[in-house]
């Protein structure tokens, strides 16, 4: 068995807010194997983006990050600024959720790709221009050379998204953190981009953490899935196992809310009820107020994430009472 590419232990993120400390990520553990594509799913506000950002220590004080993020024999949460800088962008790239606000409005797209090439590839001037155009071309932006001198606001939403992917890939990273990279895109482009990511995974032997709302995307792309709820991972499993036999009542709810076969991917349908307030969590399972399988036992203590079958982890007390699903990956829309 090879060593994990990235190893996260007891990751906690606390965000002070006027209404109290918001405990956005609560003791997250996971390993990512080299070349693996891990899907991170969960409803809005479950802490996916906050988790992803803390992997490269992007949060600034007063936001507090604790735990360890092991990468290349170093704990990134404690590494020196210089070390961190060479990892950021150089070895671990990130695609932000909102391309509009993540791109600087007063720099051209070419300049923003160029920054990366200069910092991590030592390319400048003509060579950088050439490479930047190649990258835009790679992500499917038409007449890329001409678009280099455009500003972000001159791009359409989908093209901004692709420009951002081009920036992230410029340094040929070993690990890509992709926060909903295809949400703003239509289905054809989405397919292209996902295919591109998979190809690069092969070519560069890149690992990917893919945050998404879209279980179809997960089925199509991921090797393994981590389900997040209320700042915690509540289930992790291989993608096939998860779709056939979820071991957490929340995952089951997610899968059951999918549209039936024939229809194509839809975003997760909401499960009745709302997400828990991360400022003041009740004791017990955070999903309990919305759970169909809840019992008294669920409300007494928060169930830990335990290995319930080889390679499968769940934080549900009643994991073995949940029904298997007939759904197959095909039905989810591959």
């Amino acid at each position: 068995m090879t060593a994990p590419h990235l190893s996260v232990r007891d990751l906690n993120v606390r965000i002070p807010t006027p209404g109290g400390v918001l405990h956005a990520v609560r003791g997250v553990n996971f390993d990512l194997m080299p070349g693996e594509v891990l899907g991170l799913v969960g409803e809005s506000g479950s802490g996916k983006s906050v988790t992803l950002r803390s992997l490269i220590r992007l949060h600034r004080p007063p936001i507090q990050m604790t735990g360890t993020v092991e990468y290349g024999g170093q704990n990134l949460l404690a590494a020196s600024d210089a070390k961190l800088r060479s990892v950021r962008g150089g070895q671990i790239s990130m695609i932000f959720q909102e391309p509009m606000s993540a791109l600087n409005p007063v720099l051209t797209v070419g300049e923003q790709i160029g920054e990366n090439l200069r910092e991590h590839k030592g390319l400048r001037g003509r060579a950088a221009q050439e490479r930047a155009a190649e990258l835009l071309d790679l992500t499917g932006i038409p007449s890329p050379r001409a678009r280099l001198s455009d500003y972000p606001h001159q791009f359409s939403g989908g093209m901004r998204q692709r420009a951002m992917i081009a920036i992230a890939l410029a340094s040929e990273p070993q690990l890509l953190l992709a926060d909903e990279p295809t949400t703003a895109l239509d289905v054809t482009i989405q397919d292209q981009i996902l295919r591109l990511l998979l190809r690069l995974r092969e070519e560069l032997h890149m690992s990917v953490i893919l945050v998404t709302h879209d279980l179809g995307v997960v089925a199509q792309t991921c090797d393994r899935v981590a389900v997040m709820y209320g700042g915690r991972l509540v289930e992790t499993a291989g993608v096939n196992d998860l779709f056939h036999a979820p071991k957490h009542a929340y995952t089951l709810g997610l899968l059951q809310s999918l549209p039936g076969a024939g229809e194509h991917r839809r975003p997760l349908q909401p499960i009745p009820g709302g997400p828990p307030d991360l400022r003041s969590l009740p004791p017990g399972c955070p999903f309990a107020p919305r759970c169909a399988y809840v019992t008294e036992a669920c409300r007494t203590g928060e169930p830990p994430l335990l290995e319930v079958a080889p390679g499968r982890f769940s934080a549900c007390i009643h994991y073995d009472e949940l029904p298997a699903l007939k759904s197959t990956l095909e039905e989810v829309g591959v």
């Binding site: 600034r60 004080p61 007063p62 936001i63 600024d81």
Partner: peptide, 10 residues
């Protein structure tokens, strides 16, 4: 200074 890592103090 690593100015950008500096506190966003409340």
């Amino acid at each position: 200074s690593p100015a950008l890592e500096v506190a966003v103090r409340p």
